[in-house]
Computed example of a mutant assay.
Amino acid sequence: MAVQKVPQATAERLPVYYRSLQRLVANGKTRISSSEFGKIVQIDSTTIRKDFSYFGALGRKGYGYNTRHLMEFLRKTLYQDELSKVILIGVGHLGTALLNHNLQKNDNTRIVKAYDVNPSKAGKEIGGTKIHTLDELKTDDNTDIAAAILTVPAGQAQKVAELAIASGIHGFLNFAPVRLQLPPDVYVRHVDMTVELQALIYFLNHAIEEKQSQ
């Protein structure tokens, strides 16, 4: 089956669909319509059908989608049949929390190594993950690592990312409140909680203002 090029917005929704399908299958749901599924994931059914259309005929008109078949398809599409190893750089409050959690809701992704600039943390373990000095990142071979999580201050993020790239990393989940300038073959997901909260507050206040004006 030829798969069309999938838009970024569609790719970002696939994990949402996959996690919801896991719950549906676990609860014994065998089939579901796009409209019913849309209510569960809070995405309109037209968007769901369009997203799935990039991968061919995943459902049938008048029947909907076989939940297990769709879940297994997304499992393979999202590479959930193999373990993805991740490193974390920056063992502060946020980094420590992530290490303690260590992606517990995802059996296929693990933080296997952590780095920090503070040498006193080297050799310690948090959540089963050993901490290394940042100097070790300069000589380590991380070509078998899927991505790095950056939880460092904004002023250190660019330099640290460049060190990680030199060690073999080509993907980042960046929690630092700064946009990284990296080569085009390096993929970065920025997670800025301040920006997200500001946007949330804007939408909440905008909704209140709309109600008051009615």
Results as ranks from 00 to 15, higher is better:
92 G>N: 07
160 V>M: 06
151 T>G: 04
38 G>H: 04
166 A>S: 15
125 E>S: 15
158 Q>S: 09
12 E>P: 00
172 F>P: 00
138 K>L: 14
145 I>G: 01
205 N>D: 10
25 V>A: 12
113 K>I: 05
92 G>L: 08
155 G>Y: 04
88 L>E: 04
209 E>I: 10
68 R>D: 11
211 K>S: 11
37 F>T: 03
119 P>T: 10
146 A>D: 09
214 Q>Y: 11
44 D>G: 02
174 N>Y: 06
118 N>W: 07
95 G>P: 03
15 P>V: 09
37 F>Q: 04
150 L>N: 03
197 L>W: 04
20 S>I: 08
170 H>S: 13
178 V>I: 15
156 Q>K: 13
156 Q>N: 14
45 S>R: 11
88 L>S: 03
127 G>S: 06
59 G>F: 02
193 M>S: 13
109 T>G: 00
82 E>I: 14
5 K>M: 09
51 D>F: 04
198 Q>P: 00
80 Q>P: 00
187 Y>T: 15
92 G>C: 08
183 P>R: 09
103 L>C: 11
148 A>V: 07
116 D>I: 09
97 A>T: 12
53 S>I: 00
145 I>S: 01
35 S>Y: 03
210 E>S: 12
6 V>A: 04
63 Y>K: 10
203 F>V: 10
106 N>Q: 14
173 L>R: 09
133 T>E: 12
46 T>F: 08
208 I>A: 15
105 K>Q: 14
49 R>L: 10
179 R>M: 11
203 F>Q: 14
55 F>Y: 15
31 R>K: 14
120 S>T: 15
2 A>C: 00
202 Y>P: 01
172 F>C: 05
184 P>I: 09
66 N>L: 04
70 L>Y: 03
164 A>N: 03
78 L>I: 08
26 A>R: 12
133 T>I: 09
115 Y>Q: 06
51 D>E: 03
134 L>C: 09
45 S>C: 02
185 D>A: 12
112 V>I: 15
7 P>I: 06
186 V>F: 03
106 N>L: 13
30 T>P: 00
89 I>Q: 01
96 T>V: 01
210 E>R: 15
5 K>Q: 12
193 M>A: 14
185 D>K: 12
124 K>Y: 10
58 L>I: 07
175 F>K: 02
145 I>N: 02
62 G>V: 07
141 D>K: 10
140 D>M: 11
104 Q>D: 10
82 E>N: 08
104 Q>M: 11
19 R>Q: 13
169 I>T: 07
20 S>G: 02
208 I>E: 13
95 G>L: 06
95 G>R: 02
204 L>T: 13
3 V>L: 09
125 E>M: 12
47 T>D: 02
203 F>I: 09
24 L>T: 06
